[in-house]
Structure formats: C-alpha cells, structure tokens
Amino acid sequence: MPHPYPYADYLADSIARQLTQLSARLFQLPADQVPQLLARVLDPDDGVLGRFTGLLDTGAVLAKDSAERGALPPEVCLALSRAANELHDIGLDLDELTESLTTGPPAVAKPAVASPLVARRHR
C-alpha cells in the first residue's frame, strides 16, 4: 500500500513553507544583510532561482516523455520548457547584477542620492 503522503509532496510543501519563512525573514534582517541574502537566492547555479529552474527543466523532460506516450497534452511539456528557458534567461540577466548586491555601490566622492526606480525611454 502506498504511503498516504508521498515524500515528494512533503518536500514540495516544505520548500514552499521555507520560502515563505525566508521572505518574512528578509524584513527582519539588517538592511546591509539583505543584498547578500538576495545574491545567494538569485545565484544561477546554487541559489533558489537556479535550483528551481533546474526543477522545471527536469519536469519538462519528464513531461515530454509523458506527452510522447499520450499521458499528457504536449502543451504541458512546451509550457514547462518555456518556463524553464524564461527563468534561465532571467537568471542570466540577474547574474549580471548580483555582483553589485554583494559588493555594494561603488565608492563615490559625493553622497548617494535617491533615484526613481523608473526606466525612462530616450527618443
């Protein structure tokens, strides 16, 4: 008789709870520690984002096998593959910025001035 609550379900639920706890913990950390933690989370190889991307990639491969057997619609495999590719690209974009999270802003002669977080297009 199969276990009523499979281990994979337990792992998925545990990871979701831990991510919720980590998110709540960010608000409790001193401001200078938040960037380092975010850099660890966003690490494309060993961080949460990179590992989640790998999980989706594995799911896409398994979904492809299931779709080829007719057990899943092909759209499931395509959606998982697209999600894994998009996350990979996002990880690459963020990886370029992660160094600034760990090193902080460059030293400048004048004091830092708050800037709006709006990208303006030049025409």
Rank of each mutant, 00 (worst) to 15 (best):
V108E: 14
D45E: 10
N85W: 09
Q28K: 14
L49Y: 07
R123S: 10
P111L: 10
K64F: 13
D13E: 06
P74K: 01
L19H: 10
I90T: 05
L94K: 00
F27V: 15
A39T: 01
T20M: 08
A114N: 07
L19R: 12
A119K: 08
R17Y: 10
L49R: 06
L38Q: 01
L29V: 00
T102W: 03
A60R: 02
V61T: 12
L97H: 05
D89F: 06
F27S: 15
R25D: 12
A67G: 02
D89W: 07
A67V: 02
P106A: 08
P111Q: 12
F27R: 15
R120P: 07
A71W: 04
R25L: 13
Q33R: 08
A16C: 10
C77H: 08
L38G: 01
G91H: 00
T58L: 13
P44K: 07
K64R: 13
L42Q: 05
R25M: 13
V61R: 13
A107E: 04
D45H: 06
L101H: 03
C77A: 10
A71R: 05
L11D: 09
T103S: 11
P2D: 04
F27N: 15
Y5V: 15
A71S: 03
A67N: 01
G70M: 01
P35Q: 02
V108A: 13
L37H: 09
L97F: 03
A114L: 07
H88R: 11
T20W: 07
A63F: 00
E68G: 05
P74T: 02
A12G: 05
L80P: 02
S14D: 14
V61Q: 12
R82A: 13
P74Q: 02
S23H: 12
L56T: 00
L94S: 01
F27P: 13
L72S: 01
R121F: 03
E99G: 08
F52G: 12
G47P: 03
P6E: 06
I15M: 10
M1H: 09
H88S: 11
A16N: 11
N85L: 12
V61C: 09
T53Q: 12
A39D: 02
P105S: 15
L37D: 09
V76Q: 06
L42I: 06
A16R: 12
G54V: 00
L42E: 04
L11M: 12
G47S: 07
T98A: 11
S66K: 07
P35S: 04
G59D: 10
D32P: 04
L117C: 08
A112M: 03
I90G: 03
T20P: 05
P30M: 08
R121A: 03
P105E: 15
T58P: 08
D32G: 06
L22H: 07
H122Y: 15
V34N: 00
P6M: 05
Q33F: 04
R51T: 06
L97C: 05
D93Q: 15
Q18N: 12
A31T: 08
L72Q: 02
H122M: 15
N85S: 13
Q21S: 05
L55T: 05
